[in-house]
Amino acid sequence: MMSLFAFQGAVELGLGYGLLAIGLYISYRIVNVADLTVDGSFTLGAAVSAVLTAAGHPVFGVLAAMVIGSLAGFATAFLQTKMKIQPILAGILTMTALYSVNLRIMGKPNVPLLGADTIFTMMASVVGDKFSKLLTCLLIVLIIMAAVVLFFRTQLGLSIRATGDNEDMVRSSSINSDMTKTIGLCMANAIVALSGAVIAQMQMFADSSMGIGMVVIGLASIIIGEVIFGHSSVLRSVIAVTLGSVIYRIIIAEVLELGMPQGDLKLISSVIVALAISYPVLISHLRMRTLRKGNDRKGEKSRA
């Protein structure tokens, strides 16, 4: 059975990675682009945050991470819209380039933050150490949720949503679909970079390889949240994907408590995503099978 301490830690991580899920939700669901930039922009946010935090500017590190993360999204959008490169390939190219960029920013593969002041130590000075991480993550997530929901109710936000639904229709309505797609991807990667910045300060280090597999983690959070809580509106969706991230982290923590090796986490993540994606199909097959059995029994009774 998971301890209360481990449960709280899982919830804190879930909220931190919930920002990643919200960012990926924007690109994956709203803009309708399979954006693989995420692996690079997550590390980019962590790198910028760690370097500025080590220099004594933790809050500025978080804000700068969002700005530079949006530039990563802009690079991917530029390759897609202006250079006419396929979305998946554009994301891979940007992600690959960001590996070198992240190393340049950090100056070395790993930047430790032991002893440095972070946004969490600042919160701890107000509320104490016990709930400082939880409250800080919750506050940031609520701010981002509110900003995303309000933005996608504006005319520009509705245009971005329409671009993801039907790009041809948007173009016929004299809306610049390249611009709306670019803004959507910039926003998505800014929030992903924010997630990296928060996680780096929470874990007290940034590593050049910490972004590997973030797409899978984000998709797992999105699909778990949507399957359990639904996705009928933007508000419901951002809440669902954040709770999905928390549930995913609790599952991972429980698996680790059972003694599963740390190296198997990526395998577990892939299995969770596969099961979550195939859930509607499995339920449909199960219902059809039950219906057929019911029909067979009725047929047997009528013949008798």
Results as ranks from 00 to 15, higher is better:
2 M>W: 00
8 Q>D: 14
14 G>H: 14
20 L>A: 03
20 L>D: 14
22 I>P: 01
26 I>D: 03
28 Y>W: 11
35 D>P: 10
37 T>A: 03
38 V>D: 00
39 D>T: 01
44 L>W: 06
45 G>L: 02
47 A>M: 06
49 S>D: 13
51 V>E: 05
52 L>V: 07
59 V>L: 07
59 V>I: 14
64 A>E: 04
64 A>W: 08
65 A>P: 02
67 V>G: 13
71 L>D: 00
72 A>Y: 05
80 Q>R: 12
82 K>I: 00
82 K>L: 15
84 K>I: 12
87 P>L: 07
90 A>E: 02
93 L>Y: 00
94 T>L: 02
97 A>N: 00
102 N>R: 05
105 I>N: 00
111 V>C: 10
114 L>S: 12
120 F>H: 12
123 M>K: 07
130 K>E: 09
133 K>I: 03
138 L>V: 10
138 L>C: 13
140 I>T: 02
148 V>H: 02
148 V>Q: 04
149 V>H: 05
156 L>D: 00
158 L>W: 02
161 R>V: 05
164 G>I: 14
166 N>L: 08
167 E>D: 09
171 R>D: 15
177 S>V: 14
183 I>W: 07
184 G>P: 12
190 A>F: 10
190 A>S: 12
194 L>K: 00
196 G>D: 02
197 A>M: 02
205 F>I: 09
209 S>Q: 09
213 G>Y: 13
215 V>G: 10
215 V>L: 09
220 A>E: 05
223 I>H: 06
225 G>D: 01
229 F>P: 08
232 S>C: 04
237 S>V: 11
239 I>S: 01
240 A>R: 04
240 A>F: 11
243 L>W: 05
243 L>G: 07
244 G>I: 10
247 I>S: 03
251 I>S: 06
256 L>C: 13
264 D>W: 10
266 K>I: 12
270 S>N: 07
273 V>L: 10
276 A>F: 06
278 S>C: 11
283 I>V: 14
285 H>G: 08
285 H>P: 00
288 M>L: 14
291 L>K: 07
292 R>M: 08
294 G>V: 04
303 R>E: 14
